[in-house]
Computed example of a mutant assay.
Amino acid sequence: MLYNALLLAHVLSVIVWIGGMVFSHFFLRPAAQMLEPPQRVRLMHGVLQRFLGAVAVAAVVVLASGLGMIGVARAAAANAFAMPLDWTIMATIGLVMMGIFGFIYLVLLKRLGQAVAAFDWPAGGQALARIRTLVGVNLLIGVLIVAQTLLL
Rank of each mutant, 00 (worst) to 15 (best):
Y3L: 02
N4I: 04
N4V: 07
A5H: 04
A5M: 07
L6K: 07
A9Q: 03
A9K: 02
H10I: 11
H10K: 04
H10R: 10
V11Y: 01
V11I: 15
S13A: 15
S13G: 11
W17I: 08
W17F: 13
G20F: 00
V22Y: 08
S24F: 10
H25E: 08
F26G: 04
R29H: 12
A31S: 08
A31C: 01
M34F: 00
M34I: 03
L35E: 05
E36G: 06
P37Q: 07
P37F: 00
P38L: 07
P38H: 06
M44K: 00
G46P: 07
F51K: 00
L52F: 14
L52T: 09
G53P: 11
V57Q: 09
V57K: 08
A59T: 11
A64L: 13
G66A: 03
G66W: 05
L67Q: 06
G68Y: 09
G68C: 04
M69K: 07
M69H: 08
I70W: 06
G71V: 01
G71C: 01
A73E: 04
A76C: 00
A78R: 11
N79P: 02
F81M: 06
A82D: 10
M83S: 13
L85G: 05
W87N: 13
I89Q: 14
M90L: 13
I93C: 02
L95Q: 11
V96D: 02
V96S: 03
V96E: 05
V96K: 05
M97I: 13
M98H: 03
M98P: 01
G99L: 14
G102H: 05
F103Q: 00
I104Q: 12
L106N: 15
L106Q: 14
L108E: 10
G113V: 09
G113C: 03
Q114S: 12
F119V: 01
D120L: 02
W121S: 04
W121T: 10
G124E: 03
A129W: 08
A129Q: 15
R132T: 15
T133G: 05
G136H: 15
G136F: 15
G136I: 14
L139P: 11
G142Q: 09
V146D: 12
Q148E: 14
T149Q: 05
L151F: 11
L152M: 15
L152N: 13
